[in-house]
Amino acid sequence: MKALLIAESREGKVLGSCSELVAFAQKAGSDSVMFMVGTDSNLPAYDGTIYLADAAKYGEYNPAVHKQLILDVVTKEKPDMIVFSHSSYGWDLAPRVAFALEAAQFSEVADIVDGDPVVPACNSKLRRRLKAKSTVKVLTLQAGAFSLAEPITASPNVEKIDTDTAGKVTFLGYEEAPKGGVDLGKAAIIVSAGRGVGGKDNIPMVAALAKALGGEYGASRPVVDAEWVEHARQVGTTGQTVSPKLYVACGISGAIQHLAGMKKSEFIVAINTDKDAPIGEVADVLVVADVKQFLPALTERLQAG
């Protein structure tokens, strides 16, 4: 069995998820080769061959061109699996490659059970085991689902590749995240608000608990999208990644994108009316309660304490 691992590079830097692709190939007991649109001055640690296309020439986002480059490697290497990260790069590119190869695609693979990929459904409240009808398979891997027991230190053997395909979209550049005054990465205690806090009017309740604990307050994505809290305080894949001593998740269901940003916290308390909420999977303590009743009770005691 052979896997083609699609590594990612942004602004000349290899993204950390590359090692997860290698970990997946190991777990699946598969040989592998790697592909990346990037630069030869910054390569992933990998003990094998990497097919490298020059990002300066092809751009970091140019789906039709990246697809063709991958298809050329597929023709040469004839892999059984083409493996992406389930990221903004992977979920954009994987279906294009799957379509061209008439292959089935498994999205957000979290595990392999008896050879079948397992993927989440319904905000991770359910899991599905899937089988492909096609011989070649395309997979995207859930962030953090596969990790190496020991880091790799080897340097890959580089084979440069080219194509003369033109793309239909024009990549104009990156826009950095707005700079906020809050660096949640440095906070020892974070109290975060999720949609379950009920409304913007209840954010002060979350901020008050953070203050009583001597920490900062943060928020999940839906709360930021609804403009209850500014983006600088967002925790998760598209916000900040945090690992405080104490993380208190208030009315946060626990979407995978949020969990990816906070599951390395030392101690996690979740407050949720839904006992089955996926946040319970990572919480050390799950308080089954309405945030609006529980938070004032807790804050009052801490202030009195």
């Binding site: 903004s88 990549f171 990156y174 826009e175 950095e176 995240a177 983006h231 967002q234 598209t238 916000g239």
Partner: peptide, 8 residues
Amino acid sequence: LEGGIKAK
């Protein structure tokens, strides 16, 4: 994209 970055 990840980490609050956007591609134009």
